[in-house]
């Protein structure tokens, strides 16, 4: 299998690593209590990483105890975890399962309606039908349903300079956790750059390439799609911003520009909003996007 990751993700990972090296006390201060998670407006970003405290050595009678701590500090990998027989200790095993639980719930969750209302985003569906089918048929997540197309035609300003679209993608949690910060800062950035905005909306069950179908309907100069990423164990609430100059049917992957890993320990949401604005500005100036864009 080809297993490579894009350079921007690499940069984000380096940033995340540096963040991780902040004093543990600071991280703890930022964490939220685990109670009432469903009610919480600001759930703790990495879930169990905070709830379980910073990783420490569980190796009893280590040949060099400080050495084990040194090793643990050098990697986010789950090491120095010790064992019972050949199996992991209970708490380590449960910690792993907690992180996986957060990731799964992100995939199967739904974006909060009050949040969408707050920003005046109306909703259209793709042909995804349900989450299970969404996972099996990425092609169906790339086409807006006919009634949605009608709604867009009725509600949206056509041929705007900038079109903003939000979608749950593979993590509804990512939208819940980041939109409130990303969206206003993006609007500020657009107005600072003097760019005019079309009518934003939300796509339920969207894939990245739904941009092309929307491009065909609305014909914007540039389109930005804020979409939930495939959740990992480190963060289940990571969002990406995919941007494209004049997206249309047949647009190829390399025509899109992406800022990924938008979450508090990756690219912070507020910064991301401002950054997206300047990338869109560059696209409009250079009349291109993706690998041809010079930024």
């Amino acid at each position: 299998m080809n297993r490579t990751i894009p350079l921007d993700q690499l940069v984000d990972k380096v940033m995340a690593e540096l963040q991780k090296k902040l004093p543990a006390a600071l991280q703890n201060a930022a964490s939220q209590p685990a109670a009432n998670v469903t009610e919480s407006r600001m759930p703790s970003e990495t879930g169990s990483a905070d709830d379980f405290g910073p990783p420490i050595s569980h190796v009893p009678n280590a040949k060099w105890a400080e050495g084990v701590e040194e090793l643990i500090a050098s990697t986010p990998a789950r090491i120095g975890v010790w064992r019972s027989g050949t199996r992991p200790l209970t708490r380590e095993m449960l910690k792993f399962r907690c992180d996986h639980a957060a990731a799964i719930d992100s995939v199967y969750g739904t974006v909060s309606q009050p949040l969408l209302d707050e920003f005046g985003l109306f909703t259209v569906d793709t042909y995804f039908e349900n989450i299970d089918n969404y996972l099996k048929r990425p092609d169906m997540g790339r086409i807006i349903r006919d009634d949605g197309v009608e709604r867009i035609r009725r509600s949206c300003r056509m041929k705007p300079q900038v079109q903003i679209v939000v979608s749950d993608g593979l993590s509804a949690n990512a939208v819940d956790a980041n939109l409130r910060d990303v969206y206003p800062s993006l609007l500020d950035s657009l107005s600072a750059h003097g760019l005019s905005l079309g009518t934003p909306f939300f796509v339920r069950g969207g894939r990245v390439a739904v941009m092309d179908h929307i491009g065909d309907i609305i014909e914007p100069e540039v389109l930005v799609l804020l979409i939930g990423e495939r959740p990992g164990l480190v963060s289940s609430r990571s969002m990406s911003a995919y941007m494209c100059y004049r997206p249309r049917k047949g647009t190829v992957e390399s025509d899109r520009t992406v800022i990924s890993n938008i979450h508090p320990r990756g690219t912070p949401s507020l910064e991301a909003g401002a950054h997206i604005g300047s990338v869109l500005k560059a696209m409009l100036e250079q009349k291109t996007s993706g690998v041809n864009l010079d930024i």
Partner: peptide
């Protein structure tokens, strides 16, 4: 074998050092 089955670089889960020993 990856630590606790969690590959912190490739962001997927495999089998662990513990699993192979077991």
């Amino acid at each position: 074998g990856v630590p606790m089955a969690d590959d912190c670089m490739l962001n997927y889960q495999s089998t662990s050092y513990h699993d192979i020993a077991t």
